[in-house]
Design a binder for these strands. Structure first.
Length: 482
RNA sequence: CGGGGCGUAGCGCAGUCUGGUAGCGUAUCGGUUUUGGGAACCGAGGGUCGGAAGUUCGAAUCUUCUCGCCCCGACCA
C-alpha cells in the first residue's frame, strides 16, 4: 500500500496511548457514549448489535444444553441479600439502594440487584420439593448495578448487561459437572466467536465469588499486558440452599439441601473484543460477531454511476440471501476514500469495492481489514471466496491474539523474576504456588499482581512456590488485572 | 476513596499566567463541480467558556465550592 497507511487521523494510535485509543475507538465507532449518569454509558446501536450477536450465539449454546430463560425482579429486599453471610459481605460495598417508593419511606430498603442469587434462590425454595424437580436449569438476561468507584466503558460500568445462569442439582458431582460444562461453553464463545484465546482455571480463595465454594474463570491477556476476566462459573455447593432453605427429597427418601451453580458473562466481552483485535485504524471485528461481515462500496463514476449502483445492489441482495450480513454504502455524499476509512474504523472485516474497471472485467475487489490485502475475484466466485476470506480472518485474528499471549507468558521460578516482569513488560506469569494465603498476599502487596487462575490444581510442574520456596502444590497464572 | 491532569461550537484545540464584549481547524447547512484512500471552491448557521457563589466598573481569565471525564494507586465482572 505504499508509504502512508495512516488513513484514519481521528483516533489516537494504539501504540502511543492504549487507554486513549480505547476510548477514541468506542466514541468514533459509535459503540457507546457517556450518559448524564456517572459511570453509566449508553450502548449505541452499533455496539448493541455486537452484544446481540454475542447474546444470540451464547443463548443458542445454553438452550442446546437444556437451559431455559426466565426473568426475576430488579429489586431485592435487604433481608434476602443478608441471608448468605459471605455473599452480603462481598457485595455490600457496591450495592445501590432504593429507600423511597413514591412519597413513602420504605420500611425495608431494596437493593438494586448486584447479582440475583438471593431473589432467585428464594423462589427456588418454593419450586423445588423432589429429586424429580431437578436439575433446574435457568438463565436470565438482565441488567445489573454495582456502585463502582472507577469505571471504564464496557470494562467496568455502574450498570451493565449480562446473563446469569442459576442451576440446581441433586448432587455435588452434578453441580461440579455443570459448572465445568458452562466454563467450556464460555471458552467456546470467547475463542470460536470472539476470536479471543482464553485460559480456563480455578480462582483462589481470595478471588472467588462471594458465597461460592469454587469459582472457575476464563482469563484473557490484553495487548497492554493486563489480564481480563471474561467469564466466571461458580459451584455454590450448598451454601445458598442452606441459607435459602432449598431442600428436596432424594431417591432414598431423605431430605437433602440442593446443590447449586451460578455463572455469567457481561458486556465486558465487548471491551475485550475492542482491545484484543483493534489497530491504529480502529476496530477489527471477528466475522462471527460483526454486525456487518462485508461492506459494499460502489465507486460510482460519471456515466457508470447507474450501472455500478445496480450491480452493487445485486451483489448486496445476493449476499443477504446467502446469509451474509452485508451493508451497501450507497451514500453519494461521501467519497469512496472517506467510506474506506469509516468502515475500517468500524471494524468490518471485508470491504467489497466495485468500480468501472471491475464492471468491465466482471470482477469485484475484496479487501481484508487486517492487512488491507486486495483480492480481485470474478463475480461468479464472489460468494465462495468471500466465505473463505471471512473464515480466514476469523482464524487469523484468533491466532494473532494467541501468538501475542504465548509471547507474553513467562515461566518463572523465583519471586524476583516475577516482580521484574510485572514491573517491566507485564503479561502472564506461570509459576508454582504453595497454596498459602500468605504468599498470594505478599505478591499482591509487592507487585499488585494477583493469581488470575489456578491452571493445574492437582499438582504442579514447578517444584517450588516462587514466593516461599516450599513445595509447590499448584501451577498458577499471575498477572496484573483489569 | 487517595495522588495527578483536563472541562471553551458536534469533535479536536488556542485564548487563562498579565481581567476589557470569544477564536482556529474540522464537522454541519445551502450551492456548483467531484468520487479507485477521509474532494475543491463560494456562501451560511452554530457558544449563557461544565455548574454555583464571590471579587471587580467589567470574569473564559482571579478566589471558593461543586459536578463530570481521563491517568496512576486501593476496590471490583
Amino acid at each position: 500500500m505504499g508509504k502512508n497507511n495512516d488513513f484514519v487521523k481521528q483516533i489516537t494510535k494504539k501504540s502511543e496511548d492504549f487507554s486513549k485509543w480505547y476510548i477514541d475507538v468506542i466514541k468514533r465507532a459509535k459503540l457507546a457514549d457517556y450518559s448524564p449518569m456517572k459511570g453509566m454509558m449508553v450502548i449505541r446501536p452499533y455496539g448493541y448489535e455486537i452484544w446481540e450477536l454475542i447474546k444470540e450465539n451464547l443463548d443458542r449454546m445454553l438452550k442446546e444444553t437444556g437451559h431455559r430463560n426466565a426473568y426475576f425482579p430488579l429489586l431485592i429486599p435487604e433481608s434476602f441479600l443478608k441471608k448468605e453471610a459471605e455473599h452480603v459481605k462481598g457485595f455490600a460495598p457496591e450495592v445501590a439502594w432504593v429507600t423511597i417508593g413514591g412519597n413513602e419511606v420504605l420500611e425495608e430498603r431494596l437493593a438494586i440487584r448486584p447479582t440475583s442469587e438471593a431473589i432467585i434462590c428464594s423462589m427456588y425454595s418454593k419450586w423445588i420439593k423432589s429429586w424429580r424437580d431437578l436439575p433446574l436449569l435457568i438463565n436470565q438476561w438482565a441488567n445489573i448495578v454495582r456502585w463502582e468507584k472507577v469505571t471504564r466503558p464496557f470494562l467496568r460500568t455502574t450498570e451493565f448487561l449480562w446473563q446469569e445462569g442459576h442451576t440446581v442439582h441433586s448432587s455435588y458431582e452434578e453441580a461440579e459437572e455443570e459448572t465445568l460444562k458452562i466454563l467450556d461453553i464460555y471458552k467456546t464463545l470467547a475463542e470460536k466467536y470472539l476470536a479471543i484465546p482464553v485460559i480456563p482455571g480455578l480462582k483462589s480463595e481470595n478471588e472467588k465469588f462471594a458465597g461460592a465454594l469454587r469459582t472457575y474463570c476464563i482469563e484473557a491477556l490484553m495487548p497492554d499486558g493486563k489480564a481480563l476476566q471474561m467469564g466466571t462459573s461458580h459451584n455454590l455447593a450448598q451454601n445458598f440452599s442452606k441459607a435459602f432453605n432449598i431442600k428436596f427429597e432424594n431417591k432414598k427418601q431423605e431430605i437433602e439441601f440442593a446443590w447449586q451453580t451460578s455463572w455469567g458473562v457481561t458486556t465486558r466481552l465487548i471491551g475485550a473484543l475492542i482491545m484484543t483485535h483493534g489497530d491504529d485504524s480502529g476496530l477489527i471485528l471477528p466475522p462471527e460477531i460483526s454486525p456487518f461481515q462485508a461492506v459494499i462500496i460502489p465507486i460510482a463514476k460519471g456515466n457508470y454511476t447507474k450501472s455500478i449502483l445496480s450491480e452493487a445492489k445485486k451483489i448486496h441482495n445476493k449476499l443477504k440471501e446467502k446469509g451474509i450480513r452485508s451493508c451497501l454504502d450507497d451514500r453519494d455524499s461521501y467519497t469512496p476514500g472517506w467510506k474506506f476509512s469509516e468502515w475500517e474504523l468500524k471494524g468490518v472485516p471485508v470491504r467489497i469495492e466495485i468500480g468501472p474497471k471491475d464492471l468491465e472485467k466482471g470482477q469485484v475487489v475484496l479487501v481484508n481489514r487486517i492487512d488491507r490485502n486486495k483480492i480481485f475475484v470474478k463475480q461468479e466466485n464472489l460468494l465462495s471466496t468471500l466465505k473463505e476470506l471471512l473464515n480466514e480472518i476469523q482464524i487469523k485474528l484468533f491466532n494473532r491474539a494467541k501468538d501475542f499471549r504465548e509471547n507474553n507468558t513467562n515461566n518463572v521460578e523465583r519471586f524476583s523474576e516475577l516482580k521484574e516482569i510485572i514491573e517491566t513488560k507485564k503479561g502472564f506469569i506461570k509459576t508454582g504456588w504453595c497454596g498459602s494465603n500468605k504468599c498470594e498476599k505478599e505478591v499482591k502487596e509487592k507487585t499488585s499482581a494477583t493469581i488470575r487462575a489456578i491452571i493445574n490444581e492437582k499438582n504442579s510442574n514447578f517444584k517450588k512456590c516462587a514466593i516461599c520456596g516450599k513445595k509447590a502444590k499448584h501451577t498458577v497464572l499471575f498477572a496484573k488485572s483489569y
